[in-house]
Design a protein around this nucleic acid. Structure first.
Lengths: 187, 187
DNA sequence: ACCTGAACACCGTTCAAGT
DNA sequence: ACCTGAACACCGTTCAAGT
């Protein structure tokens, strides 16, 4: 008869995430993850399709950490909060974050985040037919900055200056947002 | 007496770049690069420190492809041209481009690009003490978009829509640029 | 159904040896 | 100085076998 599994997929993900946080993405090895669970590498394949699949699950796990924000009055506040939360998450999982840029955002956590950005943009007065495009642009700007920050491109820039950079980036987006208010597709 | 080398560092870089362009970054293997030169993998180490070093050289090679633009009247035109050239380069070397986000831009090609962006910003009226920060923000936005485009995050978005996204991103930056005109460090 | 042990086809890199 | 051959310590993954 079927024996109960000795460990779950969630435990696999948790182990991989700890490994990534502590020693970087290169340390996330099927062997290392298995060792952390006291198990053979091949045992992982009962819970996970492949290493690529595991990395996808890692991205999902990180995105699901984003707290649900209670509804704020204006749309810009929502967008700002979202950006700061995302930056906090990036700081907690710097090794995993760059992966966000490398795969299409189609799983649950990604879709939820995208929907929240679209809602916030809509509350900013962006017309619905420009919401998708607006979401892509805003998230691209955010991910570009956070990936730069977490994966070494800003390594030489002192932290307090990166904080100021982030504030100015928010301000730049706020100033540029009216672009989305005009009719978006002119054909 | 010292024999002439059978191949040069440039040839190593060229082979690696071809491999990356044709079959993706995963195909850039010391063995594969060596095979393309008709040589043993270990022969590469006479011209290159390590694979990591080779990847750095690859990034440099791609950045050095950027054509020198003749000086245009206004700063914004310079910035726009630069962005379009960068996008062209990204399209030609989609596999290498994401690496740009992952390492600090300190080599020759990167520094030259950064200087050109700073000059263009200055020509846009950005004060000198905000030029560094402005360069970081503008290049972050550009790299964020181009990395997204070349490494799969926009995989589902049809090309003509990505073109329109890019135009709107330029417009958003143009609208937001005045943020840099104000005194940048208020302490 | 879940896990193991052995095996396969790869990696990047070192080292001593050849010329 | 440049390149080779053999070897090392790793990868991710398969497969047949155990329970």
């Amino acid at each position: 008869m079927p024996r109960p599994a000795r460990f779950t997929r969630s435990e696999v993900i948790a182990s991989a995430l700890q490994l990534a946080d502590e020693q970087g993405l290169a340390a996330v090895t099927m062997s290392a993850v298995a060792a952390r669970l006291g198990v053979t590498p091949m045992a992982l394949y009962a819970h996970v399709d492949s290493k690529e699949h595991l990395l996808d699950l890692l991205v999902e796990a990180v995105l699901c950490e984003l707290p649900e924000t209670d509804d704020l009055p204006d749309g810009w506040s929502q967008l700002e909060i979202l950006a700061r939360e995302l930056r906090g998450t990036a700081g907690r999982h710097p090794a995993v974050f760059p992966l966000l840029l490398q795969r299409p955002a189609v799983a649950g956590g990604s879709l939820r985040l995208r929907a929240r950005i679209r809602d916030a943009l809509h509350a900013c007065g962006v017309p619905v037919d420009a919401a998708d495009r607006g979401e892509r642009l805003v998230s691209t700007i955010a991910l570009g900055f956070l990936a730069s920050e977490t994966s070494g491109r800003f390594a030489e820039v002192p932290p307090e200056q990166r904080d100021a950079d982030f504030e100015l980036l928010l301000e730049l987006v706020r100033q540029g947002l009216p672009v989305l208010h005009r009719r978006s597709s002119r054909r």
